[in-house]
Design a protein around this nucleic acid. Structure first.
Length: 799
RNA sequence: GCCUGUGUGGUGGAAUUGGUAGACGCGUUGGACUCAAAAUCCAAUGGUAGCAAUACCGUGUGGGUUCGAGUCCCACCACAGGCACCA
């Protein structure tokens, strides 16, 4: 047998030495931009799941290259973030040192997989030459009025001592450490992402994302169309504003509820007679975790505001106001009009507090539960007798005419909290001056570099460790020259990954985020592969960022990615997610050592539907190794005949078609299967031609690039495969002369017969009746009709 | 609760989109080679009945459309992912 590690090293060196995969712009060639999410270089090295994703991307890149595309297939490192910082805290070294070490390991592993990456474009988000431009782009947001400082309650992880975005604290659990988050007031930099809600929705039309990715984004943005309604506060000149999607039920609004954080509670503290009780409720709400507060199944709680009463503007009835934590401060106006007859939550609250329930839609039995279905309006004055949409329209018209409210759109999407109180992130390039306020760091002073310090731990006050470093903090105001202080917060991990695909286009550019000509040439990412876990967060941030850059005239396209696909995970042999604690982790290094990178790659492509999870099975890997061994052994049976072996011509042409289409459609598993079928056919012959062999290994090359190059060289089959063109099939040669015609009687298969491909329908019919078993099934029965599907089957219907 | 998906042999998974269900691989069983083992090669392999030809059953469940349904329609069940007191 052959020495696969020797062969693999040989060809990896060859590709390196010859810079085989380096690309430059070439206006004469069609471009193809293959992007795969760049990894966070952790200390544990690559996972076999990475192997699947990178191999699949590599197959695409090699396939497109062979099809004469100018292929950009780059790689880099998303290297800011908590793990490197934790490691630094523990070992008292600069995080960049740990990052350098890890990158080395990752890159070595990627090379040993034989990936056709253009390494000349490599960078890390932690390179000052890169984050200089991340900082510069933040300043563009700032200058466009899209970055602002806001004192607001944020998610706070008491364990990590860190502010978290809503995205990082989903469900009230810290994404990093898993502990329960609380709330804390902090002055944060925030990006006005919510301004872009509609653009993010509309832009989806220009993408080819999977439906589930689009749906996830649409849900995340959460657009709802409704109305804003003002309720007058009795004995004041003020109004309490609410958002509702059901303005038509206003006649049934019998009370109002404000969230515990609503500003009116402070504003009207003198008017609220039971303010102590209210304050107590606010305190309790604050103490509760996000999980407790948003548990929809728990019993409703609340306190009635004594002394503060609202007036329903549609009927001028006085209605009470309550404070309750089932109303969220960060959605709508933080206050609602409650229609207990037709809303489950309001119903539960009204029942508990003994509030009036007025039915305004016909249907259901509201003595038992809220009726949330549709119905004709009743008890609703001028809306009586109307259906839902008609009533909504009429009500909004009325509200607008009478200056009580207006139509309004609301989004679930929030602004992006952009501050982190950590060391290992891009410093936010802002300076605070007593006289001038917040002043951007001038472009020529970028990047604001992370200093060397002895401790990387967050401070007890929750501020970044940078706040303890006087040399970093103290500076001069760029505007007036007086003593000033730097912002010590850093950017979130998502910042560096929100524009990295642009940088690959011209990674060395030093006067812009990337060269405009390069961005125009490479354009949008053609195929972007990443995990489903990034369908909302990373993908929305990246799109928001790019849309903004486009508006600023900094990039040529509004949408950054054409097609987004997502791969399934590789699970452990037991079908569970691989983890150290479960002891089911498969190390790709071991697999490469024992079976070779080619076998590993082939197996990871063959393992199953690329978009679905798949459980690891080492026997499957052995099977793929066996397949490659058999391909290798064909070297012994080469003959000197020209062209294809005649009997193999059809299946070879068919296989070219099948493999090409499958790779194009990301059906890697069936592409490998087609090659196995071809090999099975080939092995039925005593000898094969060089052309037979060359075509087989060319089709196999994207999956097993090393062994195929070696075979190609040893047998002198042609040019190196990495610079060769993909085979083209002959459409006239993909049809066999004969096929197995299926004969059914009443839809059941009763016989099969080998017939010539150019048999006429009549010939097919008569051949069908000659089959003995068919005869027995139609004997003595009346033939009602005969269905003929050319080149496939005959179905005889009898009675 | 809502939104996406998915459900096929012992197993990973195929099925030209309404036309032979189970390709290909793994596993299992039998055989060849070998003193023996490994490796390799050959054969069989959805279930039931049968010596066999063949018949019946079979793609989560129950209905339906059709000459014909894994594929389309209706209802339901289970699992996975996302969202969720969003007014």
């Amino acid at each position: 047998m052959y020495n696969f590690s020797e062969i693999e090293k040989k060809w990896q060196k060859y590709w390196d030495d010859n810079q085989s995969f380096k690309v430059e712009m070439d206006e004469n060639k069609k471009k193809f931009y293959m992007l795969v999410e760049f990894p966070y270089p952790s200390g544990v090295g690559l996972h076999v799941g990475h192997g699947r994703v990178y191999t699949a991307s590599d197959v695409q890149a090699r396939f497109k290259r062979a099809n004469n595309y100018n292929v950009l297939f780059p790689m880099g490192w998303d290297a800011f973030g908590a793990p490197a910082e934790q490691y630094a805290i523990k070992n008292h070294i600069h995080p960049s040192e740990a990052v350098q070490e890890n990158i080395k390991v990752f890159k070595g592993q990627m090379k040993s997989l034989g990936l056709a990456i253009d390494w000349s474009r490599e960078f890390a988000t932690t390179d000052p030459e890169y984050y200089k431009w991340t900082q510069w782009q933040f300043l563009q947001f700032y200058k466009a009025g899209l970055a602002y400082k806001d004192e607001k309650e944020i998610n706070w992880c008491p364990n990590c001592k860190m502010g978290l975005s809503n995205e990082d604290a989903q469900g009230g659990v810290c994404e990093r450490c898993g502990c329960q988050t609380t709330k804390k007031l902090k002055n944060q930099w925030v990006l006005r992402m919510s301004n872009y809600a509609d653009k993010l929705l509309d832009g989806l039309a220009d993408t080819e994302f999977l439906d589930k990715v689009k749906t996830a984004q649409v849900n995340w943005i959460g657009k709802s169309i409704g109305a804003s309604v003002n309720f007058k506060l009795k004995d004041t000149d003020d109004y309490l504003e609410v958002f509702t999607t059901r303005a038509d039920t206003l006649f049934g609004a019998t009370f109002m509820v404000v969230s515990p954080e609503h500003p009116y509670l402070e504003k009207y503290k003198d008017k609220i007679e039971n303010i102590d009780e209210v304050n107590k409720y606010q305190e309790e709400a604050k103490k509760k975790s996000e999980i407790e507060r948003t548990d929809a199944t728990k019993e409703k709680t609340g306190v009635k505001l004594e002394g503060l009463v609202a007036i329903n503007p549609i009927n001028n009835k006085e209605i009470p106001i309550y404070i309750s934590d089932y109303v969220l401060v960060n959605y709508g106006t933080g206050a609602i009009m409650a229609v207990p007859a037709h809303d489950e939550r309001d119903y539960a609250f009204a029942k508990k507090f003994g509030i009036d329930i007025i039915q305004v839609l016909e249907g259901g039995d509201i003595t038992k539960e809220a009726y949330i279905g549709d119905g004709v309006h009743i008890n609703s004055g001028f809306l009586d007798g109307l259906g839902k949409q008609e009533a909504i329209d009429k009500m909004i018209e009325y509200l607008e005419e009478n200056n009580i409210g207006h139509s309004q759109v609301n989004y679930r999407l929030q602004d992006w909290i952009f501050s982190r109180q950590r060391f290992w992130g891009e410093p936010i390039p802002m300076i605070y001056c007593e006289d001038c306020g917040w002043v951007p760091v001038p472009d020529e002073d970028l990047p604001v570099v992370l200093p060397n310090v002895s401790s990387y731990e967050p401070t007890d006050t929750g501020e970044s460790p940078l706040a303890n470093i006087d040399e970093f903090v103290n500076c001069k105001c760029p505007k007036c020259g007086k003593d000033a202080k730097r912002e010590t917060d850093t950017m979130p991990n998502w910042a560096g990954s929100s524009w990295y695909w642009l940088r690959y286009m011209s990674p060395k550019c030093d006067n812009a985020i990337a060269d405009m000509d390069a961005m125009k040439y490479w354009g949008k990412v053609d195929l972007y592969d990443g995990g489903m876990e990034h369908a909302t967060r990373h993908l929305l941030y990246a799109r928001f960022w790019n849309i903004f850059l486009h508006e600023q005239g900094l990039v040529p396209n509004s949408e950054p990615f054409s097609k987004r696909i997502s791969h399934g995970m590789i699970l452990g042999p037991n079908g569970e997610k691989m983890s150290k604690s479960k002891g089911n982790v498969v190390n790709p290094n071991d697999m490469i050592e024992n079976y070779g990178a080619d076998a590993l790659r082939t197996y990871e492509m063959f393992i199953g539907d690329y978009s679905k999870d798949a459980a690891w099975n080492e026997n499957g890997l052995k099977g793929c190794k066996k397949f490659l061994d058999r391909v290798w052994r064909l070297q012994e049976v080469l003959n000197d005949n020209e062209g294809y072996t005649k009997e193999l011509e059809v299946i070879i042409n068919k296989t070219i078609k099948k493999v090409s289409e499958d790779i194009e459609n990301l059906d890697y598993n069936t592409a490998v299967s087609a090659l196995m079928i071809l090999l099975n056919e080939i092995e039925k012959h005593d000898s094969i031609t060089k052309m037979d062999y060359r075509t087989l290994i060319t089709l196999l090359n994207p999956f097993a690039p090393h062994i195929t190059e070696e075979i190609n060289e040893r047998c002198s089959l042609g040019d190196t495969l990495c610079t060769s063109s993909w085979p083209i099939y002959n459409p006239d040669k993909i049809m066999d002369d004969t096929y197995e015609m299926v004969v059914q009687v009443n839809g059941k298969v009763r016989g099969k017969i080998e017939v010539s491909t150019d048999s006429s329908e009549d010939e097919m019919k008569s051949l069908a009746r000659e089959i003995d078993n068919v005869k027995t099934h139609i004997e003595g029965k009346q033939v009602v009709k005969e269905i003929v599907i050319p080149k496939k089957l005959v179905n005889i219907v009898v009675k």
